[in-house]
Amino acid sequence: MTRVLLIGIHPDAVDITDPSLPRGITHEKIAAGIEQTMADMRSRGWEAGFCSLRPETAQADVVASLASAWDCIVIGGGIRIPPPNLILFEMILNTIIRTAPGTPVAFNTSPENSADAAARWLR
């Protein structure tokens, strides 16, 4: 079975006041987007996992999630897009490189297209 891991910030830990995030974003909308992408992945017959990060424990969270083997890892836009998260994004990417070498990494543009992002690298 294909296994895909989505790495994202826990919805309650997202600074929804950040102007680089879409207007009208709420913690509830973020949570709903994550649930939708997990359902989309499962509907494709994949085992879907979500590494829910809090900035203060992010590296340990990623390492724990990578204890299992994944066929693709998707890093969510909430990590990549807001400029204050640059160092967090670098840490996550370098942790993946060290902990899961050779595993494809994909990037979504919204929670709704995370499965499409993974599919690009699962062919």
Rank of each mutant, 00 (worst) to 15 (best):
Pro83Ala: 12
His10Ala: 15
Asp40Ser: 02
Val14Glu: 12
Pro11Ala: 15
Glu90Lys: 12
Asp61Gln: 14
Pro82Asn: 12
Ala13Trp: 02
Pro22Asp: 15
Pro104Tyr: 06
Phe107Ser: 04
Ala100Ile: 03
Leu53Ile: 13
Phe89Gly: 08
Met41Pro: 03
Thr57Lys: 04
Cys51Asp: 00
Glu56Cys: 07
Ile73Tyr: 03
Ala31Gly: 05
Ile87Val: 13
Glu47Leu: 08
Val4Gln: 01
Ser43Pro: 07
Leu122Asp: 02
Phe50Val: 08
Val14Gln: 04
Asn94Asp: 10
Ala58Pro: 00
Leu21Thr: 07
Thr17Ile: 10
Ile81Ser: 10
Asp18Cys: 07
Gln36Tyr: 11
Met41Gly: 11
Val14Gly: 00
Phe107Glu: 14
Gly8Ser: 13
Pro55Val: 07
Asn113Glu: 08
Leu21Lys: 05
Arg54Asp: 10
Ser52Ala: 11
Asn108Cys: 08
Met1Asn: 10
Asp116Cys: 09
Pro82His: 12
Pro22Leu: 15
Met38His: 05
Leu93Arg: 05
Gly49Glu: 07
Ile81Met: 09
Asp12Asn: 08
Trp121Ala: 06
Asp12Arg: 10
Ala64Leu: 11
Arg44Ile: 11
Leu86Tyr: 06
Thr95Lys: 01
Ala31Arg: 12
Ile92His: 01
Pro55Gln: 11
Ala115Ile: 07
Leu5Thr: 01
Thr99Asn: 00
Cys72Met: 07
Leu6Tyr: 06
Ile97Phe: 03
Gly8Val: 11
Met41Leu: 15
Ile7Trp: 01
Arg44Thr: 03
Pro104Gly: 13
Ala106Cys: 10
Ala32Lys: 09
Arg54Glu: 15
Ile73Asn: 10
Ala31Lys: 09
Gly8Gln: 02
Ser20Leu: 09
Leu5Trp: 08
Ser110Tyr: 14
Ala48Ile: 04
Asp71Glu: 05
Leu53Arg: 00
Pro101Gln: 13
Ile16His: 10
Asn94Phe: 14
Asp116Thr: 04
Arg42Cys: 01
Arg54Cys: 08
Gly33His: 00
